[in-house]
Design a binder for these strands. Structure first.
Length: 269
DNA sequence: CTGTAATCCTGCGAGC
DNA sequence: TGCTCGCAGGATTACA
């Protein structure tokens, strides 16, 4: 579900609601999340104060006065804060009571997400750095160019690889390729430098616009305050199979690429 | 190195 | 109406 714009929205929403608060109680369910059972990890957060909230790729870093919680929303994860008396929806796995009366909740229908405690921030950053390449807003044009020219993989596969560029998922890969007028089937090593730079800029443009729309709510996604995203209204190709291409009016094609459903215009990409 | 498929889960819509 | 099937925003692993 959540890609970079959705995770960024969650973090921005939650920051004023939870940073500076002390966790006074943790309630966790019995269900297994990715990487272990939630209740066995809950005690690591008891009586810790939330110092900062950050995003890296699609990961959420809840920095504590000692250590941190690393959260991934998987496909259906929701991290929300609000009053403790709001109804507890099914598949709510962890609830953090905060000292000011607020409550942070982690809910995840499919349980592909994770909540992992780290005692040392250095260890957490080692863990992330092993899995993630540069952030889309920070990657240098030369770095992105070298990375793509070095691979024979198709663009769709390269963009989904988090070590190439962090935070792009299936939706924003398709949308960025459309804006860059590049075929998802094209191999990285076959691109011209100007095309790679066009792609980098397209990714930045698409992600920024999506963040401004609070991400895309197509199934379960909600922001940290429970508010939906609106970018799904702006999709140019994703989920628009058969619709006229916004640029040339020929129908949008659908295929399976890199194991994922892929949408693009045959004529102008 | 690349591509493909399976795995972890639940819910929903399509089609019969 | 009720059933089965395939598919869904992700990450990791195994294998050809």
């Amino acid at each position: 579900m959540p890609e970079l714009p959705e995770v960024e929205t969650v973090v921005r929403d939650l920051r004023p609601m939870i940073v500076g608060r002390r966790i006074v109680r943790v309630k966790a369910g019995q269900k297994q999340l990715r990487g272990g059972q939630s209740n066995s990890r809950a005690r690591a957060f008891h009586e810790r104060t939330i110092r900062a909230l950050d995003r890296r790729g699609k990961w959420i870093i809840v920095e504590l006065d000692r250590g941190a919680a690393l959260i991934h929303l998987g496909m259906t994860g929701q991290l929300t804060a609000g009053p403790p008396d709001r109804p507890v929806e099914p598949h709510t796995h962890v609830m953090f009571d905060l000292h000011d009366g607020g409550q942070l909740r982690f809910r995840d229908i499919r349980r592909f997400g994770s909540v992992t405690p780290f005692v040392e921030m250095a260890e957490l950053h080692r863990y992330l750095d092993a899995r993630l390449g540069p952030e889309p807003f920070a990657i240098k044009p030369a770095e992105f160019r070298q990375s793509l020219l070095a691979t024979k993989r198709v663009l769709k596969a390269a963009l989904l690889d988090q070590t190439v560029i962090a935070g792009v998922g299936n939706i924003y890969a398709d949308e960025s390729l459309f804006v860059a007028r590049l075929s998802p089937h094209c191999r990285g090593c076959d691109l011209k430098p100007v095309e790679i730079e066009r792609l980098r800029k397209a990714i930045v443009t698409v992600l920024r616009f999506a963040i401004n729309r609070r991400g895309s709510s197509i199934r379960n996604y909600v922001g940290g305050s429970g508010l939906n995203g609106e970018y799904q209204r702006e999709f140019r190709v994703y989920g628009r199979t058969g619709d006229p291409c916004p640029r040339c009016r020929s129908p949008i094609t659908h295929c399976r690429l890199a194991g994922r459903s892929t949408h693009y215009c045959r004529k102008c990409q």
